[in-house]
Computed example of a mutant assay.
Amino acid sequence: MPQIEQISEFLTSQVFWLLVFFGLTFVVVGLGMVPKILGTVEMRDGQIAGDLAAAQAARDAANSDEDAWRSRENANRAAAQGVIGEAKAKAAAANAAKLAEVQARLDARLAEAEAGIAAARNSAMAEIEGVAAEAARDIVARVAGADVEPAAAQAAVKEVMAHG
């Protein structure tokens, strides 16, 4: 077969050119392109690492800012609670003072009213004693036909009222 006989003639030249072509490809790709690609990959890795470090630094700064804000907010909240407590205490003191003033006025009015009632009772008792003494004199005059002195009738009515 003639095709098989030709293989030996052309095989060595084809293998030679195959090795030359792959050798040139290796030199161009392996020595020219691969270092550039590796440099680009290393640069990207460095840039990514730098970006991650910057992001971590930004996160740390944000966390410290948030912590500072929270502490200021807590201090402001505590100050507001203090102001509210102070206002409540002032209001309670003002209310207590007003209540004490009103209670003092009410006590004074009550004392005046009790004094008025006592005076009215004493006046009424005096009038009752006078009326009772007059009635006793009239009853004695009608029943016994005797005339009783007004002072004696008054003394008798006082004695009866004191025991009764």
Rank of each mutant, 00 (worst) to 15 (best):
D45K: 00
G30I: 00
A155W: 04
L19R: 10
Q56H: 08
V41F: 01
D51W: 08
F22A: 07
G32A: 00
A94Y: 07
A75T: 14
K36E: 08
R77Q: 13
L19P: 10
Q154A: 08
E101H: 14
T12F: 09
I37F: 03
A68Q: 12
V20R: 04
A135N: 10
P35W: 07
A124S: 05
K98E: 14
K88T: 07
I117W: 12
L99Y: 15
V83P: 00
V143T: 14
D51L: 15
A146S: 11
A111H: 14
P35Q: 08
A132E: 06
A53C: 04
I37M: 01
M161Q: 14
N74S: 09
S71Q: 00
P35R: 01
L110K: 11
L11N: 13
I37R: 01
I128T: 13
A93R: 14
V102W: 10
A61S: 12
P2C: 02
L110G: 11
E159M: 00
K88F: 09
A53W: 00
I128H: 09
V20G: 04
M161I: 11
E134S: 11
A126Q: 14
P2K: 04
H163A: 13
N74F: 12
V15F: 15
A119Y: 00
I48C: 05
D45E: 15
V157C: 10
T40Y: 00
A108W: 12
E86V: 07
M1S: 10
D60Y: 09
R121F: 09
R44V: 08
A93W: 15
S8F: 14
I139D: 11
M33T: 03
I139W: 13
R109C: 08
F21C: 14
E9L: 07
A118W: 04
W17F: 08
A141E: 07
D147Y: 00
E66I: 07
K88C: 01
G23M: 00
A55C: 02
E73M: 06
L106D: 03
V15P: 06
A119D: 05
V15M: 05
E5M: 05
L52V: 10
Q47L: 06
E149R: 01
V160Q: 02
V148P: 03
I84P: 02
K98I: 05
Q56L: 04
T25C: 06
A118V: 10
E73P: 12
A135L: 10
F26A: 05
L19Q: 04
Q154E: 09
E73I: 02
A79N: 01
D147P: 03
M33C: 07
V102H: 12
A68K: 06
G85Q: 03
A133K: 11
F10C: 03
L52H: 14
E129Q: 13
G32R: 01
A80H: 13
M43S: 13
G23C: 05
K36R: 11
V131E: 08
R109W: 08
V160M: 14
A124Y: 13
V131N: 05
V15Q: 15
S8Y: 07
I7C: 05
E5I: 12
D65G: 03
A75W: 10
A113G: 02
A91H: 15
A61L: 05
G85H: 09
E159Q: 09
A119T: 06
H163E: 13
V131W: 07
A141I: 04
V157M: 06
K158R: 15
F26E: 11
E9V: 05
I7R: 06
